[in-house]
Write a protein that binds this DNA or RNA. Sequence first.
DNA 1: GTTGAGCGTT
Length: 93
Amino acid sequence: MKSIFVGNLPWSATNEELEQKFSEFGEVKSARIINDKMTGKSKGFGFVDMDDDAAQKAIAALSGAKWGDRELTCNEARPKEDRPRKDSGRDRY
DNA sequence: GTTGAGCGTT
């Protein structure tokens, strides 16, 4: 399974729509759109978890695809380990 | 109620 970074999403985009659009290219394990204004600012992007080959196909297919009037940006998401949100490595120090 | 370059929450 690989994580796909989907950007340039419309403000009206939903997780279900993203999942549906990606599910037609492969099995979507999970799809979430980060669009939270309360906790911070508008994200406007989402993340889709799919199989490796499915993710590649989805990226190649939806990369540059148009969501209504906007062009989608699909790329492989960065490892979450690169962005420690919680105490990663509590046994240290 | 708004905005638009980017990499995430339960």
